[in-house]
Amino acid sequence: MDEYLPELMRRLLDGFSMTLFLLGWSALFATIVGTMLAIFRVSPVPPLRAFGTSYVNIFRNTPLVVLFILAVEGLPTLGVAIPFEWFAVVTLSTYTSAFICEAIRSGINTVDPGQAEASRSVGMTFGQTLGQIVLPQASRAVIPPLTSVYIALAKNTAIAAAFGVVEATGQLSNLIRDFAPFIYPSFFAIAGGYILIVAVISGIASALERKLAVVR
């Protein structure tokens, strides 16, 4: 026990700092790409719409594990040699941006059509309608679906454990190897870390929601 607790703390710290690294960068890139895709998908330009739709349908329906294989096993054969945590970020962002796109699009769909019609009737273009009228109003409706996407992303970072990254989930095997009798505490400690992350994301989301509710 005296040896277990410090080792557990060390491994949790190590593991979750990597988990947060993956989560932070992937969330950033996925949000940028996902927003772009959402704009493509509601735009009046058919090729952009088609691209957005294909992207979403391809990446949303492929298991994340297969994408990880394509990136981690495939990209190096093309001469791409980057650290494994960046392979993980690339994969997670590619996958998650499809879901971000759909979350934003669903938010756009909740805005009363009258709003867009009104802006068009005063002569606004597609860009103006979307940027100045629809997206600001959609931002509140977008929070719940976006939150579940970010929560799913936080949990999906665990898959990097099977692809060369030492993060929180991978520490379970290390802890079990060194402290076999403590398998249950080790599992619940790691699970607790994820629960904390999920709770923080939900907390931020509901705070944001409240704030935006006042503005409205």
């Binding site: 190096p76 054969t77 060369g164 991978g170 095997s173």
Partner: peptide
């Protein structure tokens, strides 16, 4: 860490 030795060996051959 990878889940199989084969995956490790492939990464070795890939230079990662």
């Amino acid at each position: 860490p990878f889940d199989t030795y084969s995956a490790c060996v492939r990464q070795l051959q890939n230079g990662t």
